[in-house]
Amino acid sequence: MTTETVPAPGTAPVDGEALLQVDALVKHFPIRQGLLQRQIGAVRAVDGVAFTVRAGETLGVVGESGCGKTTTGRLLVRLLEPTAGSIRFEGRDITHLSTGAMRPLRRDIQMIFQDPYSSLNPRHTVGTIVGAPFRLQGVKTEHGVKKAVQELLELCGLSPEHYNRYPHEFSGGQRQRIGIARALALRPKLIVADEPVSALDVSIQAQVVNLLDDLQGELGLTYVIIAHDLSVVRHVSDRVAVMYLGKVVELGGRDSLYHAPLHPYTVALMSAVPVPDPKRKQQRERILLTGDVPSPVNPPPACRFHTRCWKAQEICRQVEPPLRELRSGHLVACHFPENEPSPG
């Protein structure tokens, strides 16, 4: 018989080898109104996310706009304070560390931002931007900061001569490479990349994705890559987490998830990925979800996808499905999953 593992709601199995362990992570943004600014509600951006990331692997996080991907990424690097849950890095609980206590950890945890135009200070030169981590952390280098910065620029596909130039002198792809160089300055162990190629031309996206892949192999990096482009995620990820309205609805290995997705929402997402083969395109059924994405201020009860799901039944409106393991390493939160393995 097929073994089904049902962890506690919103928790991930304990993994002693995990570099990053996230359990029941919650972030609610309060909605205030009136002269006294009383709270009248909350935007439930992240509502019980759980996963682990092992050293050297890449976890892709996908989903529609507004599903909580970016908020999750900012929580992981502690740019936002979690409402509840826990984040453990190398076994250490960093969930509510103060700014001062987080400062030493900034060497090990870095972020690549989505927009290479707004994430770089236009008044600073490239040398100042990429060299900032050395100065802020008080790190001394063997041949000086300038030499270290020039080596980083070369590592990221830029010229050492760019040291004295300003961000406005570069293209979008080059600016993103500058952002990557800044994130790599102190040789971090974990990099959270928030839509690292979505603001770039299609012709440049592949170059940046390949750069991230090469850097991982060369420096032994661990990535959490947030994206809405399923093709990009498939190319770079070892495992993929699918989010919907603040929750992880499916989590599994790349090949397992892309070839036989279990959650109806994932099936719908996969049906929208462009296929270069005309014959395969004609054979594949395109699934169009009905209705709008519900508001995170007042999400549907139980299964949050039931308002748009073609398989929804009464239990979906009353009982929240737990994230359970249906295949080895492949978890899904659904009462009626697709491509379910037959018992035997």
Rank of each mutant, 00 (worst) to 15 (best):
P274Y: 12
F170R: 07
R123N: 06
F89L: 08
G16N: 13
I178F: 00
H228D: 11
I87V: 15
N298Q: 13
P294K: 14
T11P: 02
C316P: 10
R32S: 13
E64G: 10
L211P: 08
L35S: 08
H143D: 14
E142K: 15
L79V: 09
E340N: 02
G100E: 13
A84S: 13
L19M: 12
P116A: 09
K189P: 02
R234P: 01
Q207A: 14
P160F: 01
P104I: 12
D23H: 14
R284Q: 15
P278T: 14
Q37V: 01
V126N: 06
P7Y: 03
V197A: 05
G138N: 11
S171N: 05
G66L: 05
G291T: 13
F134R: 03
L257Q: 11
H306V: 09
L105R: 08
R317D: 07
V145R: 13
Y265G: 09
Y258N: 12
V126W: 00
S295D: 08
F170P: 01
R103N: 13
T71K: 02
E57H: 03
V77N: 02
T307I: 02
S328H: 12
V145K: 09
L80V: 05
V273C: 08
V139E: 13
K146S: 11
M1H: 06
E169N: 09
D213Q: 15
V209M: 13
V249K: 10
E314R: 15
G179R: 04
A18V: 09
K69R: 07
L155A: 05
D47T: 09
E325H: 08
S271G: 08
N339E: 04
P196Y: 05
R88I: 03
I178Q: 08
Q174S: 07
L251R: 12
E338Q: 14
V43L: 14
P296V: 12
R304I: 08
E151P: 04
Q313D: 14
R54D: 03
V319F: 00
V22Y: 01
D229F: 01
F336T: 14
C309I: 07
A206H: 00
D277E: 12
S256Q: 15
L184H: 04
T11L: 08
T266K: 14
T266H: 10
G131R: 06
P122A: 09
R308K: 11
T52K: 01
D238K: 11
L25N: 06
G10M: 06
L269F: 02
D194V: 06
G246C: 10
Y163C: 10
S198G: 05
S231C: 07
S231M: 07
V267N: 03
Q137T: 03
D292T: 15
P160C: 04
E17H: 11
G56D: 04
R44Y: 00
D255Y: 05
Q282R: 15
V26Y: 02
A148W: 00
V242S: 08
L257D: 12
T266P: 10
T125H: 04
V126D: 07
D255K: 15
P188A: 07
G252S: 11
G291N: 07
F113C: 10
M111W: 02
G41T: 10
T52R: 12
C334G: 10
L155I: 03
A260E: 14
S231A: 15
S65M: 08
Y265R: 10
I287S: 13
E142A: 15
S328Y: 01
T2F: 02
L230T: 13
F89W: 00
G179V: 01
V62C: 07
I40L: 02
